[in-house]
Design a protein around this nucleic acid. Structure first.
Length: 494
RNA sequence: GGUCAAGUGGCCGAGCGGCUAGGCACGGGUCUGCAAAACCCUUUACAGCGGUUCGACUCCGCUCUUGACCUCCA
């Protein structure tokens, strides 16, 4: 499998440091607000990577952090902790906020069928480790203490190692373009960043440290927790493109500073951003959509609610390194496509290869199906091109529907190819893409029962009743299919 | 201003130096008590201008446009 490594700006063959084990770390959410559509993208994408690596036989340890302390908000509340700020607004304990939004994040990710990572460490749970790590960097003389705060010395680091290797930034250019911020006077250099910040009297979240009461810097937690659980060097580090600089750049610097220059990560992966109607999503732009709003259709920009699986499918229909634009039209198209795919999934699970001896093997059909299956995995192995992979599923779906309409035609392909297609189609959708039917077995049984009455009415040519039942199905987003071979139901794609 | 991406048919969205992406929408047909679904057929492309090449949507240059990062952000 090849993956695009931001470090080299190239697709590279994926070779774990210690096969069959794979260590993967992804930057998780800052839990001070409701999860938004931008949070869904990395969660879903790296979930598919996690699933696919396991499908390929790797033993993956997946770590995704919860940031519950330490990130600055913006200039107006400089130096203030996001969580603490929110806590003041809502007059509650910071940990209450953290807990609330962590729960909400996990709940919505569960809905999106995002598997929980193997380890979900929190920044507040690793204060000691962060203090120790800061000490290690101080011991290397690559950080300095000012006024109870500890800053990373980018210039000193630059003497020994290279700063900017991930983002391609040149230190001198950075310095020329840095704008004036408060608190800069404590730094020797504007490019320096905090490892430990002294807490002001009104700051609520604070811990004791060798340098006084304070809280950890903004980039430190990821370095500390990734290396704690995955080792000094590990395979994959992921996150949104916006984290490339400065966040991930600083992570590399911190890790190398503390570990004699060892680069911490072999493959850096970054997903692209989400836009709304072609614009960057931002609170100030009024197009900020939370996942809750998307699922309930309550945002003014949304015409309707979209189901969790529609959202998941929508995200995967684009390649992860392209921007993805959320619009009603695009979401609606994804909803229809998703239902079509799921209808195919229901069909293929029930399909059986005919018993009869007479075969009418068709080289062309056989070849096409093999080609689709082949391309399916080639697409995944080429930097996880889920868009191209899904296109193959639809190609297969066309064949499956043909066989469904005309079961005797199944013998156009060999039993072996049929079995492979059936297995791959189901496994790929459910296990790798993590897309599933949004329905319970109980409901399905009720649908089947009602369909039984439809069949009876049909047999007695009671068309009034037939139409009534059909209308009832339609109301409940289901359709009845009258086929030559029998009667069946499916999800309405409208 | 600096750095980096991208501009594909009505919409979304892949891809490649010559061979159908796919989804949604549109049009025609098959099937049907009437439908729906499904299937079959069909239409609309690669921002502009140059260059390299036997041949470019695909490579190079310029122009225009959009976006991201440079400051918390997935």
């Amino acid at each position: 499998m090849k993956l695009y490594n931001t470090l080299s700006r190239k697709k590279e063959l994926f070779e774990p440091l210690e096969p069959p084990f794979v260590g993967m770390y992804v930057c998780g959410p800052t839990v001070y607000n409701d999860p938004h559509i931008g949070n869904a993208r990395p969660a879903v994408f790296f979930d598919v990577l996690y699933r696919y690596l396991q499908f390929l036989g790797y033993k993956v340890r997946y770590v995704r952090n919860i940031t519950d302390v330490g990130h600055l908000t913006d200039d107006s509340d400089r130096g203030e902790d996001k969580i603490a700020k929110k806590a003041k607004l809502e007059q509650v304990e910071p940990m209450q906020i953290v807990n609330k939004y962590t729960n909400r994040y996990l709940a919505v990710m569960d809905k999106l069928n995002v598997l929980r990572p193997d380890i979900a460490p929190t920044a507040t749970g690793h204060i000691l480790e962060q203090i120790e790590f800061t000490q290690r960097i101080l011991n290397e003389n690559l950080a300095y203490v000012t006024n109870g705060s500890v800053y990373f010395d980018v210039h000193a680091y630059q003497q020994k190692y290279q700063y900017g290797e991930l983002s391609g930034r040149i230190l001198d250019e950075l310095l020329a373009n840095t704008r004036e911020l408060d608190g800069q006077e404590e730094k020797r250099n504007p490019a320096d960043f905090a490892l430990w910040k002294k807490a002001t009297p009104e700051h609520i979240m604070r811990w004791n440290s060798p340098w006084g009461e304070g809280f950890p810097g903004w980039h430190l937690e990821c370095t500390v927790m990734s290396t704690k659980y995955l080792g000094t060097q590990f395979d994959i580090h992921g996150g949104g493109m916006d984290l490339m600089f400065p966040h991930h750049e600083c992570e590399i610097a911190q890790a190398r500073a503390a570990n004699k220059g060892k680069p911490p990560v072999k493959y850096w992966l970054h997903n692209n951003m989400v836009t709304v109607n072609g614009q960057k999503m931002g609170k100030s732009l009024g197009n900020f959509i939370t996942l809750e709003e998307l699922l309930t259709g309550t945002h003014p920009l949304l015409q309707q609610a979209y189901s969790p699986m529609t959202i998941r499918f929508f995200i995967l229909q684009a390649h992860y390194r392209s921007t993805l634009d959320f619009s009603n039209e695009a979401l609606l198209a994804a909803q229809k496509a998703y239902k079509r795919l799921i209808n195919g999934l229901r069909i293929v699970k029930k399909m059986q290869y005919p018993e009869s001896q007479t075969t009418n093997l068709n080289e062309k059909a056989e070849g096409e199906i093999k080609q689709y299956l082949d391309t399916l995995f080639k697409a995944m192995n080429d930097d996880l091109n889920t868009a191209l992979a899904i296109a193959q599923l639809f190609n297969l779906l066309k064949k499956i529907n043909q066989f469904y309409l005309n079961p005797t035609q199944i013998t156009a392909i060999s039993q072996e190819t049929f079995a492979t297609m059936q297995y791959v189609f189901v496994t790929f959708i459910e296990q790798i893409l993590g897309i599933q039917e949004e329905n319970t077995a109980e409901v399905t049984k009720l649908i089947e029962a009602l369909l039984h009455f439809y069949k009876e009415a049909k047999e007695t040519k009671d068309y009034a009743k037939v139409d009534k039942i059909r209308a009832y199905f339609k109301e409940n987003k289901l359709i009845i299919k009258d086929l030559k071979t029998g009667i069946d139901w499916a999800y309405d794609e409208a």
